[in-house]
């Protein structure tokens, strides 16, 4: 095949049916709505955790439980704020006209994505550490129950699996960034 003159051959490939633009635009709007819904849902989850902390304090829970709920609340708020900040930056980039014409915007989006995957992985490790410390202190101060061990073991496995997923996605995003930078 002569690659210098094969453009007519390339251009004669089977043509796909043209999409309906109105349907595409509707789908795009729907996706934006889902994204906003997710942010609202996460904000509600944060509010619920805060409410739980206040309620635990009013209810006169023990110091250990208060420290644990306080830790989870602080952890959730920190992750949420950092994620939303990064997401907003990405959304601004996505809204800008440059998204269609500049490679730098794509690199910026990838860096934001890598930052979020790293944040989720590190955040989950911190949660596991806090969770472990909480359980250890319970074991020292109270009676350890086998039933709880099974439940907590399951949770721990789930968290470790999610870390593996975050690391996998992080690595993939880094590979794409490396390709773009080349």
């Amino acid at each position: 095949m002569n690659l210098n003159n094969c453009h007519p051959f390339w251009q004669s490939t089977e043509k796909k049916p043209q999409p309906h633009m109105d349907q595409l635009l509707k789908r795009h709007k729907r996706q934006s709505a889902i994204l906003k819904f997710n942010v609202c849902f996460e904000a509600l989850a944060i509010l619920s955790v805060c409410y739980l902390l206040v309620w635990a304090y009013i209810d006169g829970k023990g110091l250990l439980e208060l420290v644990w709920i306080g830790f989870v609340t602080f952890w959730a708020i920190a992750i949420f704020v950092l994620t939303v900040k990064s997401r907003l930056d990405s959304l601004n980039q996505l809204k800008s006209e440059n998204i269609s014409t500049s490679l730098e915007v794509h690199k910026k989006l990838l860096r934001n994505e890598i930052y979020r995957w790293t944040l989720y992985a590190k955040g989950t490790w911190i949660f596991i550490l806090g969770f472990g410390l909480f359980n250890l202190s319970i074991c020292y101060s109270d009676v350890c129950q086998i039933n709880n061990f099974a439940l907590e073991g399951g949770l721990l496995l789930g968290l470790l699996a999610s870390i593996a997923f975050y690391i996998f996605r992080n690595r993939k995003a880094k590979e794409v960034l490396k390709t773009l930078e080349q």
Binding site: Q18, M21, L24, L25, E97, I99, S100, T101, S102, H106
Partner: peptide, 29 residues
């Protein structure tokens, strides 16, 4: 790609030909 071209057409001005502009949008998408 079609959606990106649609959305970016409003931002098109005389900085280059329409052909070049659209190819740029397509390849960045």
């Amino acid at each position: 790609m079609a959606l990106s071209v649609w959305r970016s057409l409003e931002g098109f001005n005389d900085q280059c030909s329409l052909n070049t502009y659209i190819y740029r949008v397509i390849h960045n998408t």
